[in-house]
Design a protein around this nucleic acid. Sequence first.
DNA 1: TACGGATTATTCCAGCCGGAATATATCGCA
DNA 2: TGCGATATATTCCGGCTGGAATAATCCGTA
Lengths: 189, 189
Amino acid sequence: MSSPLTPLALAAIALLVERPMHPYEMYQLLLERRDGHVMKVRAGSLYHAIERLDRDGLVTAVGTDRAGNRPERTTYALTDAGRSALHASVTEMLRTPVNEFPRFAVALNEAHNLSLEEAVVLFEQRRTALDAEISELTTIIESARGRAVDEAYWFVADYRRTVLAAERDWLDRIIDRLRTKDLTWPHPA
Amino acid sequence: MSSPLTPLALAAIALLVERPMHPYEMYQLLLERRDGHVMKVRAGSLYHAIERLDRDGLVTAVGTDRAGNRPERTTYALTDAGRSALHASVTEMLRTPVNEFPRFAVALNEAHNLSLEEAVVLFEQRRTALDAEISELTTIIESARGRAVDEAYWFVADYRRTVLAAERDWLDRIIDRLRTKDLTWPHPA
DNA sequence: TACGGATTATTCCAGCCGGAATATATCGCA
DNA sequence: TGCGATATATTCCGGCTGGAATAATCCGTA
């Protein structure tokens, strides 16, 4: 019926599987659980996402409460349609790879606008930055292992690390081949 | 001054390095050169992008011509500011890795909402689809090699293939571990 | 030569995102 | 007890994307 759920919409629905809550509570939980590593978590976007879910009948307002004179908080609950949408979305997103056009590929495609020397330096800098990210992910993974968390809750970190490591290794090969002039480069700009 | 160039804006500027042209001509060239493999090429977005580049002084209208009674076509040329912006953007995009939050990672993060059996099937289907994409990329690479094109013009395909292969290998390991129950899965929904 | 379909070329609109603005309440501390 | 800083909670607005609408011309063909 509707287009596939946006990441934030999916996350919101997944939280409502646990229990009804209001948007700001979801926002806090997403930050606490470090979902920011996997998607962009912005309060503004979250409110918009929930508004759409409500409009489309995937969640429903179950009441408002008010603490002090703060704005009313609307509590939302999951509907059956929402539960199906979660299942359908996750299924589809796992099953089908889609090219999401990473910016790095765009840059590679235009890299010939730079000189070979410039490119080598930039590739080296990227390589270093990737190593740092990979280390961070390793720390996260070790910590989760230590706390004996079910692997299904953190294997996304292992996935990310694997892919980043592959990019780093590719960069290493390219840098080496650029240095030895094994890889031909067009006349610099 | 302005925020980093969008992929389409970058591509437009890169085309104007060759010679001045009008938007539709850029659009055709982008399709011809298969830039659609690296970014989303939509005519509507391209016109918007060029409008912004013009507003920001990175390109400038150098005249209009008219063939028959068709709408006037405005030809654009690159400015010095545009040339610098191209260089700066490519430099920055090559140098600094940014997490772009791939949808697959989002789905992995919510995969525990499915049963282990469902997940295995979906992972297998994804694995198969990835193999097909990898083959396609290999064909493209072989063809470019055969035509002795400078490698800098197609190494983005090699990059994509490398990353996809890493994802496939990761999936293979996960599928195997799920089958042998080596990887623990939370109580299914 | 009349017609339909593809090509050429651009504009428009609705949707999503995200930074900023807004407004109140609470807490630490001097 | 008064003050600023931070947390709570939501709304707003501007920007980018992309599908659809629009419109004229060209081309093949019957």
